[in-house]
């Protein structure tokens, strides 16, 4: 199963969800933070068969798409800061466990990412330099090109820009994502190919090719006991075992 946990306005996730559910017809669920936070859930550590009224156990989920943006939706706004922090940490504490139980999480939710020293401008700049990317030094009114990274693929609305970037910088972009433990996200380049911004979710230029590639990537992670699901067959006029594989008994 593919489960989407995100906010209501995550257009990228919504489009992927609909395509996976209705075109590829794979088991898929969508839960906004607001709905998710109201689900009755019981999990027992180390066991899969605990009674659970609505949601599957994390072990039954092949791919979890999680976007923490909007996780505060439905929070207890009337409570004081200390209570709000406790409430947020309770959900983060649960999600950190949950996300690490599923087979594949987009993006991975390892504990280090919660340190302000990791997902920070300074660290990302440093990592970018280490990977061989240059970083734009000044905010200027200039054109920015957005490249979406979806696993092992890079897509942009302006394909000629990929030539400008060149093989080395594309390789360095994947290296940067690997260093930051990201699978999906977007990099903003200026016209010279220097890094301007980095997003850990797909928020801009959500084109059809981006959705298709993202769905294909998620499908590649759907695995049933040693084989990979691709799609539903629309025709029924073929043979599973061909005639030559079914010798006639004389």
């Amino acid at each position: 199963m593919i489960l989407f946990l995100t906010h209501e306005k995550d257009i990228f996730a919504k489009q992927c969800y609909l395509m996976l559910k209705y075109q590829y017809q794979v088991p898929t669920r969508w839960l906004s933070w607001q709905v998710f936070k109201k689900q009755s859930q019981c999990h027992m550590l180390g066991h899969q068969d605990i009674f659970n009224a609505i949601l599957p156990s994390p072990q039954q989920i092949d791919v979890l798409y999680v976007n923490l943006n909007g996780i505060n939706e439905g929070s207890k706004q009337d409570s004081d800061m200390k209570d709000q922090r406790y409430y947020l940490h309770s959900w983060l504490g649960f999600l950190m466990w949950y996300a690490n139980q599923v087979k594949y999480c987009l993006n991975p939710l390892k504990h280090g990412v919660f340190s302000p020293g990791v997902w920070s401008k300074t660290n990302i700049r440093r990592q970018a330099h280490l990977c061989g990317l240059s970083v734009s030094e000044h905010r200027r009114k200039r054109t920015e090109v957005i490249c979406s990274i979806l696993g092992n693929q890079i897509i942009t609305d302006d394909p000629s820009f990929l030539c400008t970037l060149g093989h080395e910088r594309i390789k360095a972009s994947f290296k940067l994502f690997h260093a930051l433990e990201l699978k999906f996200g977007q990099i903003f380049f200026d016209e010279s190919g220097a890094l301007c911004k980095l997003s850990q979710s797909i928020q801009y230029q959500i084109s059809v090719p981006v959705i298709i590639k993202a769905c294909q990537y998620m499908l590649s992670k759907l695995s049933y006991h040693g084989f990979q699901y691709l799609h539903v067959l629309n025709v029924s006029n073929g043979w599973t075992l061909s005639t030559t594989e079914r010798p006639k008994i004389v």
């Binding site: 689900q39 009755s40 859930q41 550590l45 504490g93 649960f94 139980q101």
Partner: peptide
């Protein structure tokens, strides 16, 4: 930050055999 989630940490600790992990449930809205 591993301590941000007790069950996450318990899962890691359960890989060691000189101790047991107490029976632990995570429950919400129930």
């Amino acid at each position: 930050m591993s301590n941000l989630s007790k069950p996450y940490q318990l899962d890691i600790a359960s890989q060691f055999f000189s101790w047991s992990i107490p029976k632990t449930n995570i429950i919400m809205n129930t």
